[in-house]
Protein backbone atom coordinates (compact mmCIF):
# COMPACT_ATOMS: atom_id res chain seq x y z
CA UNK A 1 0.00 0.00 0.00
CA UNK A 2 1.76 3.12 -1.13
CA UNK A 3 -0.49 6.14 -1.51
CA UNK A 4 -0.07 9.81 -0.72
CA UNK A 5 -1.94 11.44 2.11
CA UNK A 6 -3.12 15.02 2.48
CA UNK A 7 -4.37 16.22 5.82
CA UNK A 8 -6.47 19.38 5.54
CA UNK A 9 -6.80 21.33 8.78
CA UNK A 10 -10.14 23.00 8.11
CA UNK A 11 -13.17 22.77 5.83
CA UNK A 12 -11.88 25.13 3.16
CA UNK A 13 -8.62 23.21 2.91
CA UNK A 14 -10.69 20.04 2.64
CA UNK A 15 -12.76 21.51 -0.19
CA UNK A 16 -9.60 22.63 -1.94
CA UNK A 17 -8.05 19.24 -1.59
CA UNK A 18 -11.10 17.60 -3.12
CA UNK A 19 -11.21 20.21 -5.89
CA UNK A 20 -7.60 19.65 -6.91
CA UNK A 21 -8.14 15.91 -7.07
CA UNK A 22 -11.24 15.97 -9.28
CA UNK A 23 -9.40 14.33 -12.16
CA UNK A 24 -7.37 11.94 -10.07
CA UNK A 25 -8.20 8.92 -7.96
CA UNK A 26 -8.72 9.93 -4.37
CA UNK A 27 -10.38 8.52 -1.29
CA UNK A 28 -11.55 10.15 1.89
CA UNK A 29 -10.27 8.63 5.11
CA UNK A 30 -11.99 9.03 8.47
CA UNK A 31 -11.30 6.23 10.98
CA UNK A 32 -9.83 3.93 8.31
CA UNK A 33 -11.44 0.80 9.71
CA UNK A 34 -13.05 0.08 6.36
CA UNK A 35 -10.79 2.00 4.05
CA UNK A 36 -7.51 0.35 4.94
CA UNK A 37 -8.92 -3.12 4.42
CA UNK A 38 -10.24 -2.08 1.06
CA UNK A 39 -7.00 -0.41 -0.07
CA UNK A 40 -5.00 -3.43 0.94
CA UNK A 41 -6.75 -5.34 -1.80
CA UNK A 42 -6.16 -2.88 -4.61
CA UNK A 43 -3.41 -1.08 -6.45
CA UNK A 44 -2.99 2.23 -4.69
CA UNK A 45 0.06 3.64 -6.40
CA UNK A 46 -1.73 6.66 -7.93
CA UNK A 47 -4.05 7.21 -5.06
CA UNK A 48 -4.33 10.15 -2.70
CA UNK A 49 -6.08 9.75 0.62
CA UNK A 50 -7.67 12.89 2.01
CA UNK A 51 -7.41 12.47 5.73
CA UNK A 52 -10.28 14.02 7.69
CA UNK A 53 -8.79 13.23 11.08
CA UNK A 54 -7.02 16.56 11.59
CA UNK A 55 -9.83 18.88 10.52
CA UNK A 56 -10.93 21.29 13.16
CA UNK A 57 -14.62 21.88 12.55
CA UNK A 58 -17.43 21.51 15.05
CA UNK A 59 -20.01 20.67 12.42
CA UNK A 60 -17.92 17.75 11.27
CA UNK A 61 -16.84 16.36 14.60
CA UNK A 62 -19.43 17.21 17.24
CA UNK A 63 -22.86 16.09 18.35
CA UNK A 64 -25.11 19.07 18.74
CA UNK A 65 -28.49 18.85 20.45
CA UNK A 66 -30.95 21.39 19.12
CA UNK A 67 -34.65 21.93 19.80
CA UNK A 68 -35.96 20.13 16.75
CA UNK A 69 -32.96 18.12 15.69
CA UNK A 70 -29.77 16.48 16.75
CA UNK A 71 -26.81 17.09 14.48
CA UNK A 72 -24.14 14.42 14.34
CA UNK A 73 -20.95 15.33 12.52
CA UNK A 74 -19.64 12.77 10.04
CA UNK A 75 -16.42 12.41 12.08
CA UNK A 76 -18.21 11.52 15.32
CA UNK A 77 -16.98 8.12 16.50
CA UNK A 78 -19.07 5.20 17.67
CA UNK A 79 -17.63 5.70 21.14
CA UNK A 80 -18.79 9.33 21.26
CA UNK A 81 -22.25 8.21 20.20
CA UNK A 82 -22.30 5.59 22.94
CA UNK A 83 -21.38 8.16 25.54
CA UNK A 84 -23.88 10.81 24.52
CA UNK A 85 -26.77 11.09 26.99
CA UNK A 86 -29.23 12.66 24.62
CA UNK A 87 -28.76 9.83 22.16
CA UNK A 88 -28.84 7.16 24.85
CA UNK A 89 -32.13 8.50 26.22
CA UNK A 90 -33.96 9.51 23.09
CA UNK A 91 -32.49 7.35 20.34
CA UNK A 92 -31.60 4.03 21.97
CA UNK A 93 -31.53 2.28 18.61
CA UNK A 94 -28.53 4.35 17.56
CA UNK A 95 -26.84 4.05 20.92
CA UNK A 96 -27.22 0.25 20.83
CA UNK A 97 -26.03 0.02 17.25
CA UNK A 98 -22.90 1.98 18.12
CA UNK A 99 -22.31 0.06 21.34
CA UNK A 100 -22.46 -3.30 19.55
CA UNK A 101 -20.16 -2.36 16.75
CA UNK A 102 -16.94 -4.37 16.59
CA UNK A 103 -14.88 -3.77 19.73
CA UNK A 104 -13.75 -0.96 22.00
CA UNK A 105 -10.67 -0.32 19.90
CA UNK A 106 -12.60 -0.09 16.64
CA UNK A 107 -15.39 1.99 18.19
CA UNK A 108 -12.82 4.52 19.34
CA UNK A 109 -11.94 5.36 15.75
CA UNK A 110 -14.84 4.19 13.59
CA UNK A 111 -16.96 7.15 12.53
CA UNK A 112 -20.62 7.39 11.74
CA UNK A 113 -19.73 9.10 8.46
CA UNK A 114 -17.53 6.18 7.50
CA UNK A 115 -20.28 3.76 8.43
CA UNK A 116 -22.72 5.53 6.13
CA UNK A 117 -20.34 6.25 3.25
CA UNK A 118 -19.02 2.72 3.15
CA UNK A 119 -22.65 1.85 2.37
CA UNK A 120 -22.34 -1.72 3.50
CA UNK A 121 -25.67 -3.51 3.65
CA UNK A 122 -24.66 -4.61 7.13
CA UNK A 123 -23.61 -1.24 8.55
CA UNK A 124 -24.94 -1.05 12.08
CA UNK A 125 -25.06 2.65 12.80
CA UNK A 126 -26.34 3.23 9.29
CA UNK A 127 -29.19 0.84 9.92
CA UNK A 128 -30.24 2.76 13.04
CA UNK A 129 -29.93 6.02 11.16
CA UNK A 130 -32.35 4.66 8.58
CA UNK A 131 -34.86 3.67 11.26
CA UNK A 132 -34.57 7.18 12.69
CA UNK A 133 -35.49 8.69 9.32
CA UNK A 134 -32.49 10.94 9.42
CA UNK A 135 -31.14 13.20 6.71
CA UNK A 136 -27.61 13.44 5.38
CA UNK A 137 -26.00 16.79 4.78
CA UNK A 138 -23.56 16.65 1.89
CA UNK A 139 -21.21 19.48 1.08
CA UNK A 140 -19.52 20.13 -2.24
CA UNK A 141 -16.24 21.81 -3.10
CA UNK A 142 -17.95 25.20 -3.30
CA UNK A 143 -19.32 24.83 0.19
CA UNK A 144 -22.85 24.18 -1.11
CA UNK A 145 -24.92 21.87 1.04
CA UNK A 146 -27.37 19.27 -0.19
CA UNK A 147 -29.72 17.51 2.19
CA UNK A 148 -30.93 14.01 1.30
CA UNK A 149 -33.05 11.53 3.23
CA UNK A 150 -30.80 8.72 4.36
CA UNK A 151 -32.73 6.07 2.39
CA UNK A 152 -31.88 7.96 -0.78
CA UNK A 153 -28.26 8.27 0.27
CA UNK A 154 -27.69 4.58 -0.46
CA UNK A 155 -27.88 3.73 -4.13
CA UNK A 156 -26.62 0.15 -4.04
CA UNK A 157 -24.24 -2.17 -2.26
CA UNK A 158 -21.25 0.01 -1.38
CA UNK A 159 -22.48 2.94 -3.45
CA UNK A 160 -23.98 6.24 -2.36
CA UNK A 161 -25.37 9.33 -4.03
CA UNK A 162 -22.20 11.27 -3.12
CA UNK A 163 -20.72 12.97 -6.16
CA UNK A 164 -17.02 13.11 -6.71
CA UNK A 165 -16.97 16.73 -5.60
CA UNK A 166 -18.89 16.09 -2.40
CA UNK A 167 -18.33 14.72 1.04
CA UNK A 168 -20.63 13.82 3.89
CA UNK A 169 -20.72 16.66 6.36
CA UNK A 170 -23.24 15.66 8.99
CA UNK A 171 -26.36 13.72 9.82
CA UNK A 172 -29.54 15.29 11.11
CA UNK A 173 -31.84 13.32 13.36
CA UNK A 174 -35.38 14.58 13.79
CA UNK A 175 -36.40 14.85 17.44
CA UNK A 176 -39.08 12.55 18.79
CA UNK A 177 -42.61 13.98 18.70
CA UNK A 178 -43.78 16.18 21.55
CA UNK A 179 -46.63 13.78 22.33
CA UNK A 180 -44.28 10.89 22.58
CA UNK A 181 -44.35 9.60 26.12
CA UNK A 182 -42.57 6.40 25.60
CA UNK A 183 -40.15 5.13 23.03
CA UNK A 184 -39.73 1.53 22.14
CA UNK A 185 -36.39 1.69 20.42
CA UNK A 186 -33.57 -0.77 20.01
CA UNK A 187 -31.14 -2.50 17.75
CA UNK A 188 -31.06 -6.24 17.20
CA UNK A 189 -27.85 -7.60 15.80
CA UNK A 190 -27.63 -11.22 14.80
CA UNK A 191 -24.23 -12.82 14.49
CA UNK A 192 -22.21 -15.52 16.15
CA UNK A 193 -19.70 -13.62 18.27
CA UNK A 194 -20.33 -11.11 21.04
CA UNK A 195 -17.67 -8.80 19.65
CA UNK A 196 -15.92 -8.23 16.34
CA UNK A 197 -19.02 -9.39 14.59
CA UNK A 198 -20.44 -8.19 11.35
CA UNK A 199 -24.23 -8.41 11.36
CA UNK A 200 -25.60 -11.46 9.59
CA UNK A 201 -28.97 -9.79 9.93
CA UNK A 202 -29.86 -6.64 11.81
CA UNK A 203 -32.98 -4.77 12.67
CA UNK A 204 -33.28 -1.27 14.03
CA UNK A 205 -36.59 -0.12 15.43
CA UNK A 206 -37.70 3.19 16.79
CA UNK A 207 -41.34 3.28 17.80
CA UNK A 208 -42.84 6.35 19.40
CA UNK A 209 -45.80 5.82 21.64
CA UNK A 210 -48.16 8.37 23.14
CA UNK A 211 -49.48 8.27 26.64
CA UNK A 212 -52.43 6.01 25.94
CA UNK A 213 -50.13 3.42 24.37
CA UNK A 214 -50.91 4.18 20.75
CA UNK A 215 -48.09 4.22 18.27
CA UNK A 216 -47.75 7.62 16.66
CA UNK A 217 -44.61 7.10 14.67
CA UNK A 218 -42.37 4.20 13.77
CA UNK A 219 -39.17 3.58 11.90
CA UNK A 220 -37.83 0.15 10.98
CA UNK A 221 -34.46 -0.40 9.34
CA UNK A 222 -33.16 -3.77 8.24
CA UNK A 223 -29.55 -4.60 7.57
CA UNK A 224 -27.72 -7.41 5.77
CA UNK A 225 -30.98 -8.43 4.19
CA UNK A 226 -30.88 -6.62 0.86
CA UNK A 227 -28.34 -4.86 -1.40
CA UNK A 228 -28.71 -1.79 0.80
CA UNK A 229 -30.07 -1.10 4.22
CA UNK A 230 -33.81 -0.83 3.78
CA UNK A 231 -36.46 1.23 5.48
CA UNK A 232 -39.34 -1.19 6.02
CA UNK A 233 -41.97 1.42 5.39
CA UNK A 234 -45.07 -0.77 5.19
CA UNK A 235 -44.13 -2.51 8.39
CA UNK A 236 -43.61 0.81 10.12
CA UNK A 237 -46.86 2.26 8.85
CA UNK A 238 -48.67 -0.87 9.90
CA UNK A 239 -47.86 -0.10 13.51
CA UNK A 240 -49.15 3.42 13.56
CA UNK A 241 -52.40 3.73 15.42
CA UNK A 242 -52.03 0.36 17.09
CA UNK A 243 -51.75 0.04 20.81
CA UNK A 244 -48.36 -1.20 22.05
CA UNK A 245 -49.95 -2.94 25.00
CA UNK A 246 -52.11 -5.39 23.16
CA UNK A 247 -50.27 -6.81 20.24
CA UNK A 248 -51.49 -10.26 19.37
CA UNK A 249 -49.53 -13.06 17.76
CA UNK A 250 -51.44 -12.25 14.62
CA UNK A 251 -50.21 -8.64 14.74
CA UNK A 252 -46.68 -9.86 15.26
CA UNK A 253 -46.80 -12.22 12.32
CA UNK A 254 -48.37 -9.61 10.12
CA UNK A 255 -45.67 -7.13 11.06
CA UNK A 256 -42.90 -9.64 10.51
CA UNK A 257 -44.32 -10.57 7.13
CA UNK A 258 -44.33 -6.94 6.13
CA UNK A 259 -40.72 -6.53 7.22
CA UNK A 260 -39.80 -9.57 5.21
CA UNK A 261 -41.11 -8.06 1.99
CA UNK A 262 -38.10 -5.74 2.09
CA UNK A 263 -35.63 -8.57 2.37
CA UNK A 264 -33.86 -10.10 -0.61
CA UNK A 265 -30.79 -11.46 1.11
CA UNK A 266 -27.89 -13.27 -0.49
CA UNK A 267 -26.22 -16.49 0.55
CA UNK A 268 -22.57 -16.15 1.47
CA UNK A 269 -20.02 -17.82 3.76
CA UNK A 270 -21.69 -16.34 6.77
CA UNK A 271 -25.24 -17.49 6.19
CA UNK A 272 -27.68 -18.59 3.56
CA UNK A 273 -30.47 -16.44 2.28
CA UNK A 274 -32.88 -18.89 3.89
CA UNK A 275 -31.35 -18.33 7.30
CA UNK A 276 -31.35 -14.57 6.96
CA UNK A 277 -35.03 -14.51 6.08
CA UNK A 278 -35.96 -16.96 8.80
CA UNK A 279 -34.16 -14.94 11.42
CA UNK A 280 -35.38 -11.60 10.19
CA UNK A 281 -38.89 -12.90 10.49
CA UNK A 282 -38.30 -14.19 14.00
CA UNK A 283 -36.60 -11.09 15.35
CA UNK A 284 -39.21 -8.88 13.74
CA UNK A 285 -41.84 -10.71 15.73
CA UNK A 286 -39.81 -10.19 18.86
CA UNK A 287 -39.88 -6.42 18.45
CA UNK A 288 -43.54 -6.28 19.37
CA UNK A 289 -43.34 -7.54 22.91
Amino acid sequence: MDFSVVSPQNLSQLRNAIRTLQRKPYRIGAGYTDLLMELRKSDTSDLTVINLAQINDNGLSHIKSLVNHVHIGAMVTATSICMNDDIARRFPTLQQAAANLASTQIRNVATIGGNLCTASPSGDMACAIVALKAHCVLMNVDGKKRVVPVVDFFTGPRTTCLKKNEFLYKIILPRNHKQTQHIHSGFIKVGTRNAMECSVVSLAYHIQVEESGYVIDAGIGIGASAPTIRFAEKAALNLIGKNMQNFTDENRNEFAKKVLTYASPISDVRATSWYRKEVLYNISKSVLV
Partner: peptide
Protein backbone atom coordinates in the same frame (compact mmCIF):
# COMPACT_ATOMS: atom_id res chain seq x y z
CA UNK B 1 -10.70 -21.58 0.92
CA UNK B 2 -13.59 -19.17 1.39
CA UNK B 3 -12.86 -17.58 4.76
CA UNK B 4 -9.15 -16.88 5.21
CA UNK B 5 -9.69 -14.02 7.68
CA UNK B 6 -10.90 -13.34 11.21
CA UNK B 7 -13.90 -11.62 9.76
CA UNK B 8 -15.39 -14.90 8.61
CA UNK B 9 -13.35 -17.43 10.55
CA UNK B 10 -15.15 -17.08 13.82
CA UNK B 11 -12.47 -17.31 16.46
CA UNK B 12 -14.10 -16.42 19.74
CA UNK B 13 -13.00 -13.41 21.75
CA UNK B 14 -12.78 -12.61 25.44
CA UNK B 15 -16.32 -11.26 25.17
CA UNK B 16 -17.56 -14.78 24.43
Amino acid sequence: LLNPNFHNYKLLTAAD
